[in-house]
């Protein structure tokens, strides 16, 4: 009986999915189907900002102020976590139960760590050309540091310099915004030359901002992971 009911439910669900997805225009030109603001960004975004990735042109230029807010939220979250974890004395009683990682994990960590960092760097440097960007690349770099925490415990990560990198990246972001206010007309305005479209050096300040965001997010999330592991509850 239960099997019958579940089969009927599955059939209903799959029919619903089929009918819902039938309406979606897969593979067709999305510009014609977009509504008016969407069409504006798809048509004009590339010309105005020089970023081949429309999502990036929206995230970094059209609503760059909002992105600054997002980065600030992450920063405040990291600070809050640090405040919670540093308010007590370092707990030592879990030290003796800790066991070192196996040979497979250590070797894999040593081999994969530079490659993952390279991939994360690629993702945020090409944020204005291909899918991806500062947040995604930063998270990939933070996952590399998580692997380092798991696999190579003898390698100490210098948290002081991580914090310095994070603060510097935030200062660069705000500084570029203020420079846009000084040389241009508004906060975060593109004051650098556009460069050639579809090349790595294009889009003016967009790649610089995304590189700063990538460093900031990566350092912040790695710091959060380090704080959680240090507590080791």
């Amino acid at each position: 009986m239960r099997i019958l009911i579940s089969c009927v439910l599955l059939v209903i669900l799959s029919l619903g999915l089929v009918f819902a997805l039938e309406q979606a225009p897969f593979g067709s030109n999305q510009i014609d189907n977009a509504d008016k603001p969407g069409r504006f960004y798809l048509n004009q975004g590339m010309e105005k900002t020089g970023a081949a990735n429309v999502v990036t042109s929206v995230v970094v230029t059209y609503r760059g102020f909002d992105t600054l807010g997002e980065v600030t939220i992450l920063f405040i979250a990291a600070i809050g976590l640090g405040a919670v974890f540093h308010s007590r004395k370092k707990v030592k009683r879990y030290e003796k139960e800790k066991q070192s990682a196996s040979l497979i994990l250590q070797t894999g960590c040593r081999f994969l760590f530079p490659l993952i960092v390279l991939f994360g760097t690629y993702v945020f440097i090409h944020g204005h050309l291909s899918p991806g960007g500062g947040f995604q690349g930063g998270v990939i770099i933070a996952s590399a540091f998580l692997l380092l925490f798991l696999g190579c415990e003898e390698k100490k990560i210098p948290m002081k310099s991580m914090n310095t990198v994070e603060s510097l990246a935030g200062i660069i972001f705000v500084g570029i915004g203020l420079a846009g206010l000084y040389w241009g007309e508004s906060f975060l305005e593109n004051f650098l030359p556009r460069g050639m479209d579809y090349m790595l050096l294009s889009g003016g300040v967009i790649p610089i901002i995304y590189i700063a965001i990538g460093f900031k997010v990566g350092a912040e999330l790695a710091g959060i992971v380090a704080g959680l592991i240090e507590r080791n509850p």
């Binding site: 066991q99 990682a101 196996s102 497979i104 994990l105 894999g108 081999f111 994969l112 798991l150």
Partner: peptide, 20 residues
Amino acid sequence: LFVLLTNPISNHALGRAAKK
């Protein structure tokens, strides 16, 4: 290639942690 490298390592780590 990366899937081939990372997936068995993560599985190994999970299984070892579960056993330990």
